[in-house]
Amino acid sequence: MMDRLGTGRLGRFLVGLPPYAWLALFFLVPFLIVLKISLSEPSAGAPPYLPLWDWDETGALAFHLTLGNYATLFGDELYAFAYLNSIRIAGIATLGCLLIGYPAAYAIARAPTAWRQSLLLLVALPFWTSFLIRVYAWIGILKSEGMLNALLLWLGVISEPLQILQTDLAVIIGMTYSYLPFMVLPLYANLEKMDLTLLEAAADLGCRPFKAFVAVTLPLSMPGIVAGSLLVFIPAVGEFVIPDLLGGPDTLMIGKVLWAEFFDNRDWPVASAVAIAMLVLLVAPIMIIQNARTKAEEAGK
């Protein structure tokens, strides 16, 4: 008995080891490297930062830790502005994904069983094409002489082309489009397992269909809404490719700032500080909230 329990535990440990080792090696270690760089002083050499510690002339160990890079973030309002703008754009894109994704997920979840797999496949179908190509395609749609403007001109809605490309709107459209499947899939998983008898019960108790949706379906799908929104919002905040390709010079987003610090300014320590700050300011609160939610749900069960 002891032996069986023992091997069971060892087996579980062995099964759990690879993913944890993977995460430690390719997530935790790089994170620590970035953290280290963010605390070091910039230099003109290669690598473009000074080591955190070395041995001075007397042979004693000397540390060169600095919080100066973080001070820079607070000192220049460009960074704060970029953070807030990233949150705003990602927030609007998340809302857009929710407004399009919820009805889509609902429709798929209520479609005849035989159709559901095909409809889900259609949602995931864009993944078969390169993300980059799909974002480039939006340039063709949104540019001044692009398809959207041509259509609107032809319909007579507008008399001269709209400037959509190289604005925040283009970035929001691009993000909403790109991240839509990440909203639809968790929402579908949630809506699909809902007990439809509950809606019959609501109707039986005198509740009209739309009100039943608001009073029953919507609150019960909240975990799906939260999961989908986080899956869209978190990567959207740090997104670089979409604002770079669709946004204009005024589209200030943290991903672009990061790129500029790394490659244009070659200021790795400040770039690393930007990355760490983003993690602390954004992901940490969300993780804490999620953790509290999970605990509350478990306590409720």
Binding site: D195, E200, L205
Partner: peptide, 10 residues
């Protein structure tokens, strides 16, 4: 009004 087999409580 109906009392459902699965009770269907919200």
């Amino acid at each position: 009004n109906m009392m459902f087999q699965s009770y269907a409580l919200f």
